[in-house]
Design a protein around this nucleic acid. Structure first.
Length: 922
RNA sequence: GCUGGAGUGGCGGAAUUGGUAGACGCGCACGUUUCAGGGGCGUGUGAGAUCUUCUCGUGCGGGUUCGACUCCCGCCUCUAGCACCA
């Protein structure tokens, strides 16, 4: 075996790993643990492209490295298997989504295994497996049986709440609950019927049913969460989304808002990601102020963060959805207001977003009273006020808010300056903070002081109170779809009743079709006998995609446990994820929800950690490079890239596998498509040149590169190293194979270090030279540091340098090569195993130990460094290695030398880089 | 508009706390190998010049420093996320 036969080597070792269960892992308290997790994939029909494994390779390298460092490593893989594409496919073909999903999963696994990952497949989870979703349902039940106690700031069992209701009613209870929950005494509670008690408790449960305005996507026939919508269109499919009021299961994530915010301080995530979550939670400190309506008992409460500008309020605005609009409209304005509200309501979310610039609104005819200065000001309705944020009422200060400013300009409402320096500005809203003016008792204060002063006064007068507001809303938990976890609840007299734990899992029933019913009910409405105990209707919606993925990191620890979601022992050993790698697209969805569920499970004592992921890294996306051909309009004729301007052409994607260096392989192209056989070409210099562009990899753009093809040509080790070599992990970059030869050559060169031209294994036994040890230990240090920083691209360079040097030194020493293959094995495990084996070791290289570098080899002998005086390099000095770091004598000598070079003039300063200087050789 | 991140050769990208900018790879050039091709091996490769040496060079303009890709101030460009959030 003289040639580097990667196909044979990779097959051999992949089988070995599988047969010997090399990567099987168990709790082992004698070793430190490390948990490396990838965001599990949704198994789509298209299979993996070269972008998917990027993060998996990175986490695999870290896992293998940590094993060599003596850690017990949990590195599992599974599938996020419920979801829309399989269901859409089922609707079209009638095939059960479970079948497609299973097929896709086995394809994914095959592709993953080709790459040589060290997953423990014994730990695999699939969210659509009843043995798994049994516990997703179980967590749902625990949420149902819990409430949030704001006093203790944690989730607690609902029985404790009912006990307090029996004793004291709800007046002393500080809970996260629905805003309009009425208060009641112990006696009133006891007198309530069972039915009324239960519906009261629903206001407190962490998962509850509610009539809310939701994002309804008619095309998909389901509601969507805020994070599943992009610019008014569904993230999947890109269909329009509208607002609709519906009965939904909700998750009281808002109860955890503060902890989700503060918890970010103790995790090692990127700043941008933390910032995204902070924005999403959107905590703002402000004040609620009551504006009494003139000649009425109605009081409108407005939320503001700028109570200092209260003297600049010249009108108040309501959201068009506000409940009291009818009552607040005077008869002569009735027609105008109704017409406006009607238009505003029917406007889709997208339209509303699209013309943010257009100012619209209408006067109600009513006036309200400024709670601080008693001024009467008009009440308007305008769609720039959002019903979902704050109270749906805004006190408008045209002089310091640009929306209010535009509005006031448009409708000719008064604008009053309250901040010094804005008096003569064309747009006073550009200066937001400063000394207060025209503001009575606030005059002269800075904005921040004035805020405090107003808040205090309002509270004293009983017309307002400080308030913390969140942008985040409770999460809609219902999906009107088939392919998801059934909600383990049935309805009796309109009240939801949970199943008990031993009734789980509630299996997904079979249905004849996967569409909604003719009456518009979700697909589960088609299931025959979908009733509890034969009489009570089960819930018809299913759980959203994020349910199963919110806790899978725990299930991997103990995936076969039938008694618990995860055993206490195993969970407290593995704790949480040390390194989590995945795409940034889950910043506000999955990553927020799973933090929420983890905190909940922690509160209720089921797990010992309240953050799921200690360190999180977002790998960049690998984009595709699409190729284009230019077809002449109306003809079956294609023009080469540089000649296309001479014709009327349309660009057409062409399969990238038919193109090399932008040059089309015409013969292959002719076989690619039916009408291509007879196509004609306008060539330049005898060849057809294609255009190219970087885009997202997708089937329809014919730019998908399948890792299997790369492996077939170069092998998995080359693929792994090349993906790492492409650039920093977190950076997005297009896939191009320009450098892949270099990586392949490196592995072949490495191989040749062990063989001579005559096929002889030529590892020698002698002691390595100083130079050989130096290059080896330099590499060990570099690779170790780079892996720990996740700078895989530069560690690959380190290997290349090392092998090049050893080759030029003709070093074949066992002493060196042994360590070299060990440190290489996380990157290129197959070739490392083979060489390890040939070096005469028994068993797998995973049982080897990552060598420690030795300082004495790292210091470079006799190297020249410059010393600069007043910006000019005046001399070079030789330094060496074993010099004590603060060798003052040498420093003094150096400065004397410097004086000589500066011709007697004392330099201003002499800076000496201590660890580098020893002798001066002028 | 706000908030992150980034601007370095023909290209992907290196550069510890400020200390020889351009590692490593691709590409290119020359040489070499009884070398068909492909491959292998070696050398060179930021720009400019009066070419053993010198000058200029890390988006632009300033500053701090003996010394700046790195730190500070002001711009420009690209990219990602958020966006009527009061």
């Amino acid at each position: 075996m003289a040639e580097y036969d990667f196909r044979a080597i990779e097959k051999k070792w992949q089988n070995y790993w599988k047969d010997k269960e090399i990567y099987k892992v168990q709790v082992d308290t004698s070793k430190p643990k490390f948990y490396a997790l990838d965001m599990f994939p949704y198994p789509s029909g298209a299979g993996l492209h070269v972008g998917h494994p990027l993060g998996y390779i990175a986490s695999d390298i870290v896992s293998r490295y940590k094993r060599l460092k003596g850690y017990n490593v949990l590195h599992p893989m599974g599938f996020d298997a419920f979801g829309l594409p399989a269901e859409q496919y089922a609707i079209q073909t009638g095939q059960h989504p479970a079948i497609t999903t299973e097929k896709n999963i086995s394809r994914y696994k095959e592709q993953l295994n080709n790459i040589g990952f060290s997953f423990d497949w014994d730990k695999e989870v699939q969210t659509c497996d009843p043995a798994y979703y049994k516990w997703t349902q179980w967590i749902f039940l625990q949420l149902f049986h819990s409430w949030y106690n704001k006093e203790t700031d944690q989730a607690e069992p609902i029985e404790q709440l009912t006990k307090r209701f029996e004793k004291d009613g709800n007046q002393t209870v500080l809970a996260a609950c629905d805003e309009d929950t009425p208060s009641f005494s112990a006696q009133e509670w006891q007198q309530m019927s069972e039915h009324d008690q239960q519906s009261m408790l629903l206001n407190y449960r962490l998962t509850y049913v509610s009539d809310t305005v939701v994002n309804w996507c008619p095309e998909l026939g389901t509601v969507l969460a805020n994070d599943e919508i992009k610019d008014g269109f569904s993230e999947r499919g890109g269909f329009p989304v509208e607002r609709r009021k519906m009965k939904q299961w909700m998750m009281r994530i808002t109860a955890f808002a503060d902890r989700l915010l503060s918890g970010l301080d103790k995790v090692d995530w990127s700043d941008s990601l933390k910032e995204m979550q902070r924005n999403w939670i959107g905590k703002s400190f402000g004040c609620e102020l009551d504006f009494k309506v003139k000649d009425s008992d109605i009081v409108l409460t407005a939320f503001t963060t700028r109570s200092d500008t209260i003297y600049g309020v010249t009108y108040v605005t309501l959201a068009p959805e506000h409940e009291l609009i009818d009552q607040l409209t005077t008869p002569d304005q009735k027609q105008a207001v109704e017409a406006y509200v009607e238009v505003a309501k029917n406007r889709s979310e997208r339209d509303r977003m699209a013309d943010v610039k257009t100012v619209s609104g209408v006067f109600t005819g009513s006036f309200v009273v400024n709670p601080i200065n008693g001024e009467e000001i008009p009440l308007w309705v305008a769609d720039y006020v959002l019903a979902g944020y704050g109270t749906g009422v805004v006190m408008a200060v045209p002089s310091s808010d640009d929306r209010d400013f535009r509005f006031a300009k448009h409708f000719n409402l008064p604008i009053r300056m309250v901040i010094e320096g804005t008096e003569n500005m064309e747009d006073p809203t550009e200066k937001k903070h400063g000394k207060m003016i025209n503001s009575d008792f606030l005059n002269g204060m800075e904005s921040t002081e004035a805020i405090k002063a107003v808040n205090e006064r309002a509270e004293k007068k009983g017309v307002g109170k400080p308030k913390v507001n969140y942008r985040m809303r409770d999460a809609v938990f219902s999906r009107q779809r088939y392919w998801g976890e059934p909600v383990p609840v049935y309805f009796k007299d309109g009240i939801p009743h949970p199943l008990s734990t031993d009734e789980l899992p509630l299996n997904l029933p079979s249905v004849d079709e996967y569409k909604p019913t003719s009456t518009g009910e979700p697909p589960l409405g088609r299931a025959v006998d979908w009733k509890y105990d034969g009489q009570y209707e089960y819930e018809l919606t299913t759980m959203p995609g994020w349910a199963g993925s919110s806790w899978y990191h725990f299930r991997y620890m103990d995936p076969h446990n039938e008694e618990e979601m995860v055993s206490k022992t195993k969970q407290s050993y593995w704790e949480n994820v040390d390194l989590y790698i995945g795409g940034t697209e889950h910043a506000t969805g999955h990553l927020l929800y799973s933090r929420f569920w983890t905190k909940f499970l922690y509160d209720r004592g089921y797990v010992t950690v309240d953050e799921p992921y200690k360190k999180l890294v977002n790998q960049g996306m690998i984009q595709g490079v699409s190729s284009f051909m230019y077809r002449i309009a109306g003809e079956n004729k294609y023009v080469s890239y540089h000649l296309r301007e001479n014709y009327e052409t349309s660009a057409m994607h062409v399969d990238v596998s038919l193109v090399k260096d932008n040059q089309l392989d015409i013969e292959s192209f002719k076989k690619w498509k039916q009408d291509a056989q007879v196509a004609e070409f306008v060539l330049e210099n005898g060849v057809y040149i294609c255009g190219s562009e970087v885009e997202k990899m997708s089937k329809s753009k014919f730019n998908v590169v399948n890792p299997d093809d790369v492996i077939e040509q170069y092998g998995a080790d080359t693929l792994r190293m090349y993906e790492m070599f492409l650039g920093p992990l977190e950076q997005s970059k297009p896939w191009n194979t320009n450098g892949i030869d270099g990586v392949f050559k490196f592995l072949r060169k490495l191989w040749r270090l062990f063989y001579d031209d005559a096929d002889n294994f030529i590892v020698t036994e002698g002691t390595a030279t100083e130079a050989e040890m130096k290059i080896l230990h330099k590499t060990i240090k570099k690779v170790q540091e780079d892996i720990e920083d996740l700078s895989f691209n530069t560690s690959v360079s380190g290997f290349m340098i090392c092998v090049n040097e050893l080759t030029s030194m003709k070093c074949h020493k066992r002493e060196v090569l042994n360590d070299l293959v060990v440190i290489l094995s996380p990157f290129a495990p197959h070739i490392a195993e083979e060489l390890w084996h040939q070096l005469g070791h028994e068993g797998s290289i995973v049982h080897a130990v990552f060598p420690q570098y030795q300082e004495k080899y790292l210091i470079e002998a006799s190297h020249e460094y410059p010393i600069s005086v007043n910006g000019k390099v005046r001399a070079k000095m030789e330094f060496a290695l074993d010099m004590p770091k603060d060798d003052i004598e040498k420093a003094v000598l150096a400065s004397e030398q410097v004086q000589k070079w500066t011709e007697g003039k004392a330099p201003k300063r002499v800076i000496i880089v201590p660890k580098k200087i020893v002798n001066i050789v002028v």
